[in-house]
């Protein structure tokens, strides 16, 4: 059985682009890590989000590039070039050509990105449902504080968190209030407020969905780096408000120490590793100045122009690729 459909061809192209981008990110991450790590936290977070989203963008861009001339023709911008090389065996053109015939099993790997994204979206939807239910229970069990945006949790452990979706609510425990002096408590509150202002819960949901197209280990590493970057953004905001970077580091360590039940030896896991990175970053006397990255915008613009200029060559390249894939 064979399938003749431009949609099937688009899906094959999308999956190849997705796989290629995911592979490129996996191979480049060891080199990129150092560069990204030196960026200011907000830029670092944006860079991580861009990296995480790239396989999805690749999957979306591949069929657009493949059918670029046909799309231009469809919208009446430029006449398609098909008639110039009508003697060719195959054209990526849904206006003037019939789709090539694919073996039915070729569609299975081609559906991988759709399946992965659907699975990731469903998993995230389940997470959001649980989060909202738990946040509602916490809100109902909390008492009001002198800060209108913060609820007090009836727990003796020092805990502070933002929970809820898409905009979280701030919960600070009685234990945290008892442990910290007002200045340190202000650090905690400002840090959590920064998470709310930046809609980090929502932002990370998007990252978890789009990152489904990465290889699992790379996905875990990039999400961990994003998590640490977001925490650092909020640490910097808290430091800016209280005017003392060391106080933020001291508060982090004081709370970590108060949790007890410590593991012997080195740091383990994301939380512990994140803590170390955050504290070391706060030891610098001045906040990390965002370097002048005005070029980043120009780079994106230049890349877009280059893609448009090269679109026709890419279209021909993709025609060759499809021909080689289907054995034409």
């Amino acid at each position: 059985m064979r399938i003749e459909s431009w949609l099937a061809i688009s899906m094959v192209l999308s999956s190849v682009a997705c796989l290629g981008t995911a592979l490129a990110i996996t191979l480049c991450w060891p080199l990129l890590k150092g560069f990204v790590g030196r960026l200011a936290p907000a830029r670092q977070s944006r860079a991580m989000l861009a990296l995480i989203t790239m396989p999805l963008l690749g999957a979306l861009a591949a069929p657009l590039l493949a059918f670029f001339p046909s799309l231009l023709d469809l919208f009446g911008v430029v006449r398609d070039h098909c008639h110039h090389h009508i003697h060719h065996a195959f054209h990526l053109c849904f206006l003037h050509s019939a789709p090539p015939s694919l073996p039915w099993f070729a569609i299975i790997p081609a559906m991988a990105p759709v399946i992965l994204l659907t699975r990731g979206t469903l998993a995230e939807a389940r997470m959001i449902w649980r989060t909202r239910a738990l946040a509602a229970e916490f809100r109902a069990l909390s008492t009001e504080s002198e800060d209108a945006d913060i609820s007090i949790l009836a727990s003796d452990k020092p805990r502070a968190m933002v929970m809820g979706w898409p905009v979280g609510s701030i919960f600070v425990s009685r234990g945290m209030n008892a442990l910290l002096d007002p200045a340190a408590l202000a650090v905690v509150k400002e840090h959590e407020r920064a998470h709310v202002t930046h809609r980090d819960v929502f932002r990370k949901s998007l990252a978890r969905i789009t990152s489904c197209l990465l290889f699992p280990k790379t996905r875990a590493r990039l999400l961990e780096a994003l998590e640490i970057a977001r925490e650092r953004v909020c640490d910097e905001r808290a430091a800016e408000v209280v005017g003392d970077r060391l106080l933020v580091a001291e508060t982090l360590l004081r709370i970590e120490r108060a949790h007890g039940s410590r593991l012997p030896g080195g740091a383990l896991g994301v939380g512990a590793k994140g803590l170390e990175v955050r504290v070391r970053a706060l030891l610098d006397d001045s906040p990390p100045e965002p370097r002048s990255h005005g070029w980043a915008g120009w780079l994106v613009l230049a890349a877009s122009v280059a893609v448009i200029i090269a679109a026709e060559h890419m279209h021909h390249g993709l025609e060759t690729l499809v021909l080689s894939l289907i054995g034409g």
Partner: peptide, 8 residues
Amino acid sequence: VALEAFVN
């Protein structure tokens, strides 16, 4: 569950 905690 999705949340942001001050320390893990």
